Amino acid sequence: MTLDGKSIVVTGAATGIGRGITECLLKSGASVTMVGRRAEPLRELADGYGDAAAVLVQDICALGAAERIVAAAIERFDGLDAVVNNAGSARFGRLEAIDPAQFDAMFAVNVRAPADLIRCALPQLRANHGSVVNISSVGGVLSMPGRAYYGATKAAMNSLTRSLARELAPDVRVNAILPGPVDTPMWTETGLSEAATDQLRTDLLSSTPMGRLGASTELGRWACLLLDPDLSSWVTGALIPVDGGRTA
Rank of each mutant, 00 (worst) to 15 (best):
residue 34 M to Y: 00
residue 15 T to Q: 09
residue 44 E to S: 14
residue 56 L to C: 02
residue 9 V to L: 11
residue 72 A to S: 14
residue 37 R to H: 05
residue 30 A to W: 00
residue 69 I to V: 13
residue 30 A to R: 01
residue 52 A to Y: 09
residue 16 G to R: 05
residue 29 G to R: 05
residue 8 I to C: 03
residue 50 G to I: 15
residue 62 A to W: 06
residue 34 M to A: 09
residue 13 A to Y: 07
residue 38 R to I: 00
residue 9 V to R: 09
residue 42 L to K: 08
residue 28 S to L: 11
residue 49 Y to E: 09
residue 65 A to N: 06
residue 28 S to H: 11
residue 63 L to P: 14
residue 22 T to L: 04
residue 23 E to L: 14
residue 29 G to A: 09
residue 22 T to A: 10
residue 34 M to R: 00
residue 6 K to Y: 12
residue 62 A to K: 06
residue 32 V to R: 04
residue 31 S to C: 15
residue 52 A to V: 08
residue 43 R to G: 04
residue 75 E to G: 09
residue 68 R to I: 01
residue 17 I to F: 00
residue 41 P to V: 01
residue 62 A to R: 08
residue 64 G to A: 12
residue 29 G to K: 08
residue 74 I to K: 15
residue 67 E to Q: 15
residue 15 T to H: 00
residue 68 R to L: 03
residue 15 T to C: 02
residue 23 E to D: 08
residue 54 A to D: 12
residue 36 G to T: 00
residue 61 C to S: 13
residue 41 P to Y: 05
residue 12 G to R: 02
residue 42 L to I: 08
residue 66 A to Q: 05
residue 30 A to T: 03
residue 17 I to S: 07
residue 70 V to N: 10
residue 29 G to I: 04
residue 36 G to C: 03
residue 13 A to C: 11
residue 25 L to A: 06
residue 41 P to D: 07
residue 65 A to V: 08
residue 72 A to C: 14
residue 46 A to W: 10
residue 17 I to K: 01
residue 56 L to W: 01
residue 42 L to Q: 07
residue 10 V to W: 05
residue 62 A to E: 10
residue 35 V to I: 15
residue 63 L to K: 14
residue 67 E to M: 11
residue 58 Q to H: 09
residue 53 A to F: 06
residue 43 R to V: 02
residue 45 L to S: 11
residue 69 I to F: 08
residue 45 L to N: 10
residue 69 I to L: 03
residue 58 Q to F: 03
residue 50 G to R: 15
residue 68 R to K: 13
residue 61 C to M: 08
residue 51 D to A: 12
residue 31 S to R: 15
residue 47 D to G: 13
residue 16 G to P: 12
residue 53 A to Q: 10
residue 7 S to G: 12
residue 65 A to D: 02
